[in-house]
Amino acid sequence: DEDSERELEKLRKNNASKEEIKEVLKRLGFSEDEAKKLAEKAG
């Protein structure tokens, strides 16, 4: 959803580590696997 998109955008701009991105995604309700895949894509 839009909030998670914004959250990811912010992380990308701040050069967050894949680990940080994954944690945020998991907080947003993604499964471990989904979060890992998305973090890879974002990283």
Rank of each mutant, 00 (worst) to 15 (best):
D1F: 14
D1V: 12
D1P: 11
D1S: 13
D1H: 13
D1G: 11
D1N: 11
D1I: 12
E2N: 11
E2Y: 13
E2A: 11
D3L: 12
D3T: 12
D3I: 13
D3H: 11
D3Q: 09
S4T: 15
S4L: 15
S4K: 09
S4R: 12
S4I: 15
S4Q: 10
E5Y: 13
E5D: 10
E5T: 10
E5K: 12
E5I: 12
E5F: 13
E5Q: 11
E5N: 10
R6D: 10
R6L: 09
R6Q: 05
R6M: 07
R6I: 09
R6Y: 10
R6T: 09
R6F: 09
E7F: 12
E7I: 15
E7R: 07
E7L: 15
E7H: 08
L8W: 05
L8P: 01
L8D: 01
L8C: 08
L8E: 03
L8T: 02
E9Q: 09
E9N: 06
E9D: 09
E9W: 02
E9T: 07
E9K: 05
E9I: 07
K10D: 09
K10M: 12
K10E: 13
K10C: 13
K10S: 10
K10T: 12
K10F: 12
K10V: 10
K10H: 09
L11Q: 01
L11Y: 04
L11N: 03
R12N: 07
R12K: 11
R12W: 14
R12S: 07
R12M: 13
R12I: 15
R12C: 15
R12L: 14
R12F: 15
K13L: 11
K13Q: 11
K13A: 12
K13G: 09
K13Y: 08
N14C: 15
N14I: 06
N14T: 08
N14Y: 06
N14L: 09
N14P: 05
N15G: 14
N15Y: 08
N15V: 03
N15P: 01
N15D: 06
A16N: 03
A16D: 02
A16G: 05
A16W: 05
A16K: 05
S17L: 08
S17G: 06
S17A: 04
S17C: 07
S17M: 04
S17K: 05
S17Y: 06
K18Y: 14
K18Q: 12
K18P: 13
K18H: 08
K18M: 14
K18G: 06
K18V: 14
K18R: 10
K18D: 08
K18F: 15
K18E: 11
E19R: 04
E19L: 04
E19H: 08
E19Q: 10
E19S: 06
E19W: 07
E19P: 00
E19C: 10
E20K: 09
E20P: 00
E20V: 08
E20D: 07
E20Y: 08
E20R: 07
I21Y: 06
I21S: 00
I21G: 00
I21T: 01
I21Q: 02
I21E: 00
I21R: 00
I21A: 01
I21F: 05
K22R: 11
K22G: 03
K22D: 06
K22T: 14
K22I: 15
K22Y: 15
K22C: 15
K22W: 14
E23K: 07
E23P: 00
E23Y: 00
E23C: 12
E23H: 04
E23F: 00
E23W: 00
V24L: 13
V24H: 13
V24P: 00
V24I: 09
V24N: 02
V24T: 09
V24E: 06
V24Y: 14
L25I: 01
L25K: 00
L25H: 00
L25S: 01
L25G: 00
L25E: 01
L25P: 01
L25R: 00
L25M: 04
K26G: 04
K26W: 00
K26P: 00
K26V: 14
R27A: 13
R27P: 04
R27F: 08
R27I: 09
L28Y: 05
L28M: 09
L28F: 06
L28K: 03
L28R: 01
L28A: 03
G29M: 00
G29P: 03
G29S: 00
G29H: 00
G29W: 01
G29K: 01
G29D: 02
G29T: 01
F30Y: 13
F30C: 09
F30W: 10
F30N: 01
F30D: 01
S31I: 02
S31H: 03
S31E: 07
S31D: 07
S31V: 03
E32F: 03
E32R: 02
E32W: 03
E32K: 01
D33Y: 08
D33I: 10
D33Q: 09
D33M: 08
D33F: 07
E34W: 06
E34N: 04
E34F: 07
E34L: 09
E34I: 07
A35K: 01
A35Y: 04
A35T: 02
A35N: 00
A35L: 04
A35C: 15
K36A: 14
K36G: 12
K36T: 14
K36Y: 10
K36E: 15
K36Q: 14
K36R: 11
K36F: 10
K37S: 10
K37Q: 10
K37P: 02
K37M: 09
K37R: 14
K37H: 11
L38D: 01
L38P: 00
L38A: 05
L38S: 02
L38R: 05
L38F: 09
A39P: 01
A39H: 01
A39K: 01
A39W: 05
A39G: 02
E40P: 01
E40R: 00
E40L: 04
E40D: 13
E40W: 04
K41S: 13
K41M: 13
K41R: 10
A42L: 15
A42V: 14
A42T: 10
A42I: 15
A42M: 15
A42Q: 09
G43R: 04
G43S: 13
G43E: 10
G43V: 15
